[in-house]
């Protein structure tokens, strides 16, 4: 399983033609305490760079962009009841949604872990 990153601080775990998407630990640190997460509807087709989810802290709302084009297959309903999970386990239990990868070549433009670390350094 490969993990890739966007410059907007999302991560993608790639398994076959399915990508699981979340926000990075760096992103949750910048946001502060997450109090609300709005997830896309299952079945929605999202284009790369389109606002797909919203994450809100006490202070402000931030968009989470679709890192690639594809169809939303599943969302993490747990975040509705427990938005603070984004702060405690951004890279794991607080995944946002799973999507079917429409075009694998879009993955080429994303960063690996070393490149993302350099990006946030």
């Amino acid at each position: 399983m490969t993990t890739l990153y966007t410059s907007d601080h999302e991560w993608l775990k790639i398994e076959g033609d399915i990508a699981t998407v979340g926000i990075t630990n760096y992103a949750q640190e910048q946001l502060g305490d997450v109090v609300f997460v709005e997830l896309p509807k299952v079945g929605r087709s999202v284009k790369k760079a389109e606002a797909a989810a919203v994450v809100e802290s006490v202070k402000a709302a931030s968009d989470v962009y679709a890192p690639i084009t594809g169809e939303v297959l599943e969302v993490n309903d747990k975040l509705g009841d427990e938005p603070a999970l984004v702060n405690s386990d951004a890279g794991g239990a607080a995944w946002f949604f799973k999507m079917k990868i429409a075009d694998k070549s879009e993955l080429d433009g994303l960063m690996d872990e070393a490149a993302y670390k350099a990006h946030t350094a």
Binding site: G32, D33, V35, S57, V58, K59
Partner: peptide
């Protein structure tokens, strides 16, 4: 200062 290390929620 908009917040200190504990963050807005804990400060509140």
């Amino acid at each position: 200062p908009v917040q200190y290390p504990p963050g807005v929620l804990k400060e509140h």
